[in-house]
Amino acid sequence: MGLREYLLKRLVHSVFVMLFVVTVVFAAVRSIPGDPARLMLGGDVDTATLEALRAELGLNQPLYIQYFRWLRRLLTGDLGESIRTGEPVLGSIVQVAGPTLSIAALGMVIALVIAIPTGIISAVKRYEIEDYLSTTIAFFGISMPAFWIGIVLVLVIGVNVESIPTFGYTPIDEGISPWFRSILLPSFAVGFPYGGILMRMMRSSMLEVLNEDYMRTARAKGLSSNLVLFKHGLQNALIPVVTLAGIFLAVVLGGVVAVEIVFGIRGLGRLLIGSINRRDFPLIQGTVLLIAFVFVLANIVVDLLYTMINPRIKYGGGD
C-alpha cells in the first residue's frame, strides 16, 4: 500500500466518521424527551401559539426532511440558531471555543513533554529508582479524574500562589502571560491523566524496542549508548505510541469539559451542559459536532505523523 492510497483511505474514513457523527448527533438530540417549543415558551400556553412556534422552528416537518435540511445547512457552515437566545450557534460556539481549545492544546503539550522522556528513562532504567518513581506517578495520573486534580490544584496552588489564578480565563489578546497563567492549572489537570497513559505506553513500547535485534546490531557497530537509544530506538518506539496517542486524545477532550467547570471557565463544556439542561437542541448539536470535529481533525494529524515516522507506509511494498 502506497502513501497516497493510505492517506486517501484515512481521509475517506474520516469523512465517513464525521457523517456518522452528524447522523448520530441528529438522531440522539431529536430523541431527547421534552418538546423544545414548549420548553421555550414555558408554563401554560395555548396550542395555537405552540404550533406556530413549532412551524417556525421546523419541528413539525417529518424527521428525514429536518435531517436533510439540517445537513445542507451544515455544509454551508450554518449550524442554526439557539432556541433560547436566537443567536447563531456557530457564533456562540466560536465565542467560547478559545478557552477549551487552549486548555486542551496546552494539556496535550504538557503531557507529551513530560511523558515521552519519562517513559524512555523509565524503560532504560527498568527496575531502578527512576523507573519506580515515574511509573508510580503515572499510576496516580491514570487513577484520578481530571476535574478532581483540578480541585486539588485549586486548594493547594490557588491558596498559596497568588500569581496563578484559579478562576476564569484571560483571552490571549490580553497578553500571553496572563493567558498562559489562566490556563496553566486547568491544562495541567487535563494533561496529567493523558500524560500518565502516554508515559506507560512509551515505557512498554521502548522496553520492547530495547530487546530488538537491530538495537544489538547498533551496539555491535560501536555506537554510543545514547546514539543507539535515540538514533535507532526512539523512532521505532514512537510508532505504536503515536497511534494510541490520537485515540486517547478523547481523555483530554472529556477532561476539559469537567475541568472548565472547576475553574469557572466559560468554555465548550459549560456551554454543552447548559444547553442540555435547557434542551437547546441546535446548541447541543453544534457543540457536540465541534468537539467531534476537533477529535477527527486531531486524528488526521496523528495519521499524518504516523505515516511520517513509519517508512513501511511511506514506502509501500515488502511485507
Binding site: 555491535a220 560501536g222 515516522i309
Partner: peptide, 25 residues
Amino acid sequence: EMRSIRGGEISMIFQDPMTSLNPVM
C-alpha cells in the same frame, strides 16, 4: 576504546537480516 573496536576492527553478522536491520532507517 571497545566501541572503536566494535564495528571497526571486529564486526558482526547476525542471524536474521529481517530483525537485525533497523526498519526505520
